[in-house]
């Protein structure tokens, strides 16, 4: 069952989300919304709950309380149709997680064929198209281990794009890469943003967040501590964000 939100409704919305790992309160009443075509950057210290918040959107973590609506799916409910949700949401991980036994083409065509029942030839055309989008057409028949980290991450982004998601989640996708490879991955994400993709990204690249994000959510101790346009990075109002960007690498 495909539910389409009305144009005015946000693609992703979290309201008063609570989540604990044992006695540790990771999300303590988190609320934010992402509109269609918007790029939202989740920033904050390690352990502030930003990755957990992102993973809750695709239900890799179950929430203890609050409400999460993603493309019309009530993600906080136990009866949410996970497979329908995940057809609408693409997620890219820090560790790429390409399937090592499959070629890049097979990595990309697998889900469209298996989940959407796409014909193999059509899926191969699609693979070529999304690989071109990330600048890796020539790696169609390579195996993941033959690619550099940056190429693997771009291939992982292409694999997500092939499912034509309504929103993409990026979980610290450049944290395992050196500055040069980071730049090539960020360039791909920038192009996606320019193409109007709705995105939520957890990132430590402050300069990048400042350049690309429509809105910044600064998380601190499981709460949304400060939120606003990218300009809050240059003129923070709370002492915590001031300290965070002060110690961070605010390069532009």
């Amino acid at each position: 069952m495909q539910q389409n939100p009305s144009p005015s409704e946000p693609i992703v919305s979290l309201r008063d989300v609570q989540k604990s790992f044992g006695p540790l309160r990771v999300l303590d009443g988190v609320s934010f919304a992402v509109e269609r075509g918007e790029v939202l950057a989740l920033i904050g210290r390690s352990g502030s709950g930003k990755s957990t918040a992102l993973r809750c959107i695709d239900r890799f973590e179950k929430v203890d309380g609050g409400e999460i609506v993603v493309c019309g799916h009530r993600v906080d409910r136990p009866d949410v149709d996970l497979r329908a949700l995940r057809q609408d949401v693409g997620i890219v991980f820090q560790s790429y997680n390409l399937f090592p036994h499959l070629t890049i083409e097979q990595n990309i065509t697998l889900a469209p064929c298996a989940v959407k029942g796409m014909a193999a030839s059509q899926a191969r055309d699609l693979a070529r198209k999304v690989l071109a989008q990330v600048g890796l057409e020539e790696k169609l028949h390579a195996y993941p281990e033959q690619l550099s980290g940056g190429q693997q991450q771009r291939a992982a982004i292409a694999r997500s794009l092939a499912m034509q998601p309504k929103v993409m989640l990026f979980d610290e996708v450049t944290s395992a890469l050196d500055p040069e490879l980071t730049a090539e991955v960020l360039k791909v994400i920038e192009q996606l943003a320019a193409d109007g993709m709705t995105m939520v990204m957890v990132t430590h690249e402050m300069g990048f967040a400042k350049g690309i994000a429509d809105r910044i959510v600064f998380m601190h101790r499981g709460k949304v501590h400060e939120t606003g346009p990218a300009s809050i990075l240059t003129s923070p109002t709370t002492p915590e964000l001031m300290q965070f960007v002060g110690t961070g690498n605010l390069k532009s």
Binding site: L82, Q87, G90, I91, S95, N97, L98, A111, A114, S160
Partner: peptide
Amino acid sequence: GQIEAAEGLALS
């Protein structure tokens, strides 16, 4: 991570 990536792609 392999299984999470597959789940994220909506595989059963």
